[in-house]
Design a protein around this nucleic acid. Structure first.
Length: 483
DNA sequence: ATGTTC
């Protein structure tokens, strides 16, 4: 086990595991964590996993881990690894099973005072309009050919079918459409699983939430995002459902032979990978982009349903029920990006697994309204706790490949949470705090109990003190829809 | 996360 004594202190919020720690490390690990969070981190295998990642061919800089890190499949969740494009490797485990799991935030000009008496009705309507739960699909059944179209076009498919505006696309990471998506690299099973699930929430930590913008920390940035203290906002957290899961399963299996073929030595089989310039690596990249686009379209269609739900309850009752998209971010994805490495401009594949892109001011990829302030970084808390709106910084570009944290981060496994917490008790406690819940399953609710997660405020404090993101606004939950 | 063990 990596212990705190093995770490070199860079600052109060940044630590290093040097390459000398283990013979197979090609680069060091950089950990963003406060001293308090470091204690959580050393309780699971996330740092061993980060050390394992350091053995991958083609890595540049260092492997980063965010303060919300916890153990995952091969890579730790909360990990960021950049490999030289195209000769470096890409690893499905560095992206995760839920490809392009992500968050979007929609703002409103509905004040809490104006909206509070409708929250119960809104909870019911959201729950009806936005299907959720394990194995539950959306309102539409698509043909296999339609799914291919969704995979190629992402949010653009949603726009062509009346589920999106131009502004929605502009305010989605990559415009909601990753280049290089090619459905020929999807298995028939992946396509089949995608047929019924566009516009569905899923289960686990996925949710739709009505929040109160409780505190604004950066007036200028909040104004640019259309967020005002005292108003309601809506968050959607979900991903690529069964299709993305199938893509990851398929390629974890098929890339095993690439590891042997290219003679890649790995400290852990779960780090299975392939060079991006190999046929195997190219196939995974094309399939991953498909799943990423499916997830963008999924969140966009859900936004459309949420807007319909708001309209059904609020039309004629409040003066403006409109929900505008603030931003949509991916936090499980691999991206080909240009970064400055030791003073040289370099094309790399940034694996972000449970880490959010946090591009700072001036980046060409950002919509004009966010170019001066940096991109919105959306950090949902655990159920019943705060969520945060942050913004990317130049420091993030220099120190974390333009990345920051993605949430609170688990401290308790799902099974452990189910053993120690009763969903019914949790429901009562949340109700007492004035939070309205619509949950599909009590066992599922228990898995997502706040006690199973770290303190999101401490996580956010760490990334802001470390300088890789800055606070814009804090959100407090009012209504939570869970599968 | 996931048709929660093809």
């Amino acid at each position: 086990m990596v212990s705190i004594a093995d770490l070199k202190r860079i600052s109060s919020y940044e630590w290093e595991i040097p390459v000398s720690y283990r013979a197979d490390m090609r680069v060091p690990v950089r950990i963003f964590a406060s001293e308090t969070l470091l204690k959580d981190v050393t309780r699971d295998k996330s740092l061993e996993q980060a050390v394992n990642v350091c053995a991958l061919p083609g890595l540049v800089g260092s492997v980063k881990v965010m303060p919300d890190m916890h153990q995952g499949y091969g890579f730790p969740i909360g990990g960021v690894a950049a490999t030289r494009y195209p000769e470096g490797v890409i690893s499905p485990g560095g992206i995760g099973y839920d490809i392009n799991c992500g968050v979007r935030l929609l703002g409103s000009r509905i004040s809490y005072q104006e909206g509070k008496s409708y929250l119960e009705e809104l909870a019911t309507a959201l729950n009806q309009f936005c299907p959720s739960g394990v194995g539950i699909g959306g309102h539409h059944r698509l043909t296999s050919r339609d799914v291919e179209d969704v995979c190629r076009k992402g949010s653009r498919w949603a726009k062509e079918n009346g589920f999106a505006t131009d502004q929605d696309l502009r305010r989605t990471e990559d415009g909601g459409q990753l280049q290089g998506a090619d459905p020929r690299f999807l298995s028939p099973r992946a396509l089949k699983r995608g047929m019924g699930q566009v516009g569905s929430l899923g289960a686990g930590n996925h949710f739709i939430e009505i929040d109160l913008v409780s505190k604004v920390f950066d007036q200028k940035a909040a104004r640019a995002m259309g967020l005002y203290e005292g108003d309601l906002a809506l968050q959607i957290h979900c991903g690529s459902r069964g299709l993305g899961h199938q893509v990851c399963s398929d390629y974890v299996k098929s890339l095993q032979s690439a590891v042997i073929k290219y003679g890649i030595e790995l400290p852990d089989r779960e780090l299975v990978c392939a060079p991006m310039d190999s046929p195997e690596g190219e196939a995974y990249l094309a399939a991953m982009a498909c799943a990423a686009n499916y997830a963008f379209a999924n969140r966009q269609v859900l936004s459309h349903y949420a807007r319909e739900a708001f309209e059904s309850v609020l039309a004629g009752r409040v003066k403006d029920w409109h929900l505008h998209l603030v931003y949509d971010v991916a936090h499980n994805i691999g991206k080909i990006e240009t970064h400055q490495i030791d003073g040289n401009s370099m094309e790399v594949c940034v694996h972000r697994k449970g880490a959010t892109r946090a591009f700072g001011p001036g980046l060409e990829e950002l919509p004009s309204e966010y170019k001066k302030i940096g991109q919105p970084v959306l950090v949902p808390g655990s159920m019943g706790t705060s969520s945060w709106v942050l913004r990317g910084t130049s420091e993030a570009m220099a120190r974390s490949f333009g990345s920051s944290c993605h949430g609170a981060g688990r401290v308790m496994s799902r099974t452990q949470a189910k053993k120690t917490i009763r969903g019914e008790d949790l429901l009562k406690a949340l109700k007492k705090d004035g939070i309205t819940i619509r949950a599909g399953s009590m066992a599922g609710l228990a898995e997502e109990a706040p006690a199973a997660y770290k303190d999101v405020d401490e996580v956010v404090e760490t990334v802001t003190r470390a300088g890789i993101t800055a606070k814009v606004a804090q959100l407090k939950p009012l209504v939570v829809i869970k599968g």
